[in-house]
């Protein structure tokens, strides 16, 4: 049908526009990341030479590393490198940044992915469940509990977990170390507390947003109509309410997945986990700018991608956009 084709084009146009916006955002982010690392106090030459730095030595090292050239030239070189996959060399170790990053990427993705895999279904189910029985004992205790959880920052949760399970009970290690040869059981034991910390941080907001999105939809006249049609309660929630609540729910999920990325920074540091975040924190300490820049771009890109996914899902979930007049 011609109509469908036109609708498809409209949808594609909207999505393409969103993707273009995402690309522009990423470009702006690259500027901010580069600018941000530029204004970090001290520089790598200082860090390398340490106490023995004389102005002459510093000058030589800066020249060697190309730090004496204007910032904008270095920015465009760096940006060009990004596009070709060349992330530059670590200033501290001289190894290619991509080689340093490569073994750590899967570890961070595993940590964040596991947290998301547990938190998202759990939050949506609990949100749906509380929305079906608003004001019930179950609803009220979860609501109160979630406020407490939202108020506690990750480092506090992590510290409390370590105190309880590592120091007192001695069930779990305080440091999360895994390698390629680790068995699933070892991975589970190592990651239990980091994953629990991340889950705790994002579970509450996702659950509460799911609950309020569903409740908001349930107060709509179309739901009263469904009740008066004699539609069973389960069908009302799953067929009539959920599709209308999907866009806000997906949005809050995406924002919280992006938040997990932020949480990873704290969690990896606390548990000494060899992921990208810890690399970045160490990189900042060593003024190893190419490493910091690559890590920052990685986190920002993931953040933007999640938000893009949320936007695209909202567009696709809206029947007014999917089927124009």
């Amino acid at each position: 049908m011609r109509g469908d084709q036109r609708e498809g084009q409209l949808l594609t146009k909207l999505i393409l526009r969103r993707l273009a916006l995402g690309a522009i955002t990423l470009l702006v982010v690259s500027l901010i990341v580069f600018g941000g690392t530029e204004i970090l106090p001290g520089d790598v030459a200082n860090a390398i030479l340490g106490q023995g730095a004389t102005p002459e030595n510093l000058q030589v090292i800066r020249k060697e590393l190309g730090l004496d050239r204007p910032a904008y030239i270095r920015y465009f070189e760096w940006l060009g490198g990004l596009f070709t996959g060349d992330l530059g060399n670590s200033l501290a170790t001289q190894r290619p940044v991509s080689d340093i990053l490569a073994p750590r990427l899967p570890k961070t993705l595993l940590l964040g992915g596991l947290a998301a895999l547990i938190a998202v279904p759990l939050a949506v189910t609990l949100g749906l469940y509380t929305a079906m029985r608003p004001g019930s004992w179950f609803d009220r205790s979860l609501t109160t509990g979630s406020i407490a959880m939202v108020s506690a920052p990750e480092f506090l949760i992590a510290t409390l977990l370590v105190l309880a399970f590592a120091v007192e009970l001695r069930w779990l290690p305080a440091i999360a170390r895994i390698s390629e040869s680790s068995s699933p059981g070892e991975v589970f034991i190592a990651l239990a507390m980091p994953v629990a910390t991340l889950t705790a941080a994002v579970l509450a907001p996702m659950m509460r947003m799911t609950r309020s999105a569903i409740l908001n939809v349930l107060s709509h006249p179309s739901i009263e109509m469904a009740i008066l049609k004699g539609v069973p309660r389960r069908t009302i929630i799953l067929k009539h309410a959920l599709p209308n609540a999907i866009a806000p729910i997906i949005n809050v999920i995406a924002v919280n997945l992006a938040y997990i990325i932020g949480g990873v920074l704290v969690v990896e540091t606390i548990f000494s986990y060899d992921g990208v975040a810890k690399l970045m924190v160490d990189g900042v300490a060593a003024r190893d700018l190419p490493v910091v820049q690559a890590c920052a771009m990685f986190f920002c890109a993931i953040y933007i991608v999640f938000n893009l996914i949320a936007d695209v899902v909202s567009i696709v979930a809206n029947p007014r956009l999917r089927h124009s007049k």
């Binding site: 008066l228 539609v231 599709p243 029947p319």
Partner: peptide, 25 residues
């Protein structure tokens, strides 16, 4: 029991059809 009666034996036409139809279905 009410659910069985609603829609099947007694049915309802609301004032605002625009609001009472589900926009996603």
């Amino acid at each position: 029991q009410k659910r069985v009666v609603r829609g099947a034996r007694i049915s309802y036409v609301a004032q605002s059809a625009a609001a009472s139809f589900n926009a996603s279905l």
